[in-house]
Nucleic acid binder design. Structure first.
Lengths: 203, 203
DNA sequence: CGCGAAGCGGGCACCGTGCCCGTTTCGCGC
DNA sequence: GCGCGAAACGGGCACGGTGCCCGCTTCGCG
């Protein structure tokens, strides 16, 4: 939850957010964080439950969020844009300045960190086919595609290289297979090097 | 539905399937195939809908299948075990006798074929966290793990290499990115060679 | 300090689920 | 063939969640 202020959504002019509205927004997000954490994902999470824990009416939720997935997404936004900033303007190897395979490995490490810390939220944000709808997926995908280009590897692999970051995959590796985050990251590190490193200019 | 006979589930002794039960089983499966195909996945598919199309009561469905996912799974079973048979006792490169990277590529090609032909069913079988529950996932995963061992690559990559075969990933590549099945297979071919081929015994 | 507007939440109708139980149908044994 | 026990069937019901409507409350600008 990291004390984030109300933040009336920067962009075009906006009437201004009323104090009670801001208070409820905070309540809802805090409640959602708690509910998703307890459920360990999206399984038993309903709009009703979140409203009950937040102490607000259901309609108050529906005013801002159409479903539980978009609440989880709102909670993830700040963490995701942190990584996005690191890619665009942070220091290497996540940011520009390192060879492609190191940048990919750094990207994987950052995402494994996000999954480890907020797995329940990422799972909660995946209801339906939501993943490919969020703007951030397209941005990350594009980042990987550029790295593939730079390494002279087929850009068709972009989604393939994104696939291991699906939250259900991470969850399975951690909870069923018993892998540590370090083992997962190490595997992805190996993958990065093998796919992107030392490419003989492909044909 | 490819004239498959009643098949009273081989195994231990079983009372024998009544004629009306067999007839209804066939009706249900035919209806489910149709409904999943029309919905293009699991989205609007309910037990009620399948029962209606099959012309049976809802309770008749619940007798055999707890939810829509397990109906889709039943429809997939024969196709999946075909591939499984090819891995265990078919000719190379899918079966034994080829180098690991060729076997992995052949496995990918077989799965891409399955996804291309029955995507709506694989999507339908994924409701909830069902994928990792089906026996066949564990078998395929183990197959990949053995190939990794043989190539002296880290076995932690097993789930990572399985991840691109998730139906939502395939769907996204086909329908949003506009890739052809051949392009997807070619990408996975590249991946197979890079990860498994010519490993210098690691360390 | 009053008033227009935005925010709020109880309530309701709908849909799908999951199960129970009375009725129908099968097919074995005579 | 024919009756009877057992299995299968399906209509119906209660429950829980959704999504929306509408009267009430609260805010904050002038």
């Amino acid at each position: 939850m990291s004390g984030e202020a109300t933040r009336p959504r920067g962009g075009v002019e906006r009437p201004r957010e009323r104090a009670d509205a801001a208070r409820n927004r905070a309540r809802v997000l805090a409640a959602a964080e708690k509910v998703f954490a307890e459920a360990g994902g999206a399984d038993g999470v309903t709009m009703e439950e979140i409203a009950r824990v937040a102490g607000v009416g259901r309609a108050t939720l529906y005013r801002r969020y159409p479903d539980t997935a978009s609440i989880a997404q709102a909670l993830l936004d700040e963490h995701e844009s942190e990584i996005q900033a690191g890619i665009l303007s942070g220091p290497p190897p996540l940011g520009a300045g390192a060879p492609p395979h190191e940048r990919l490995a750094a990207f994987y490490r950052a995402l494994v960190g996000l999954l480890e810390r907020h797995l329940h939220l990422v799972l909660g944000a995946e209801t339906g086919q939501a993943r490919y709808r969020t703007g951030v997926y397209a941005l990350w995908r594009r980042h990987v595609e550029v790295l593939l280009e730079q390494a002279h590897a087929p850009t068709e692999l972009a989604d393939t290289l994104m696939a291991p970051l699906a939250p259900e995959v991470y969850r399975y590796q951690r909870q069923v297979r018993g892998l540590t985050p370090e083992q997962v990251a190490a595997g992805l590190d190996f993958l990065s090097r093998r796919v992107l490193a030392g490419n003989p200019a492909e044909r």
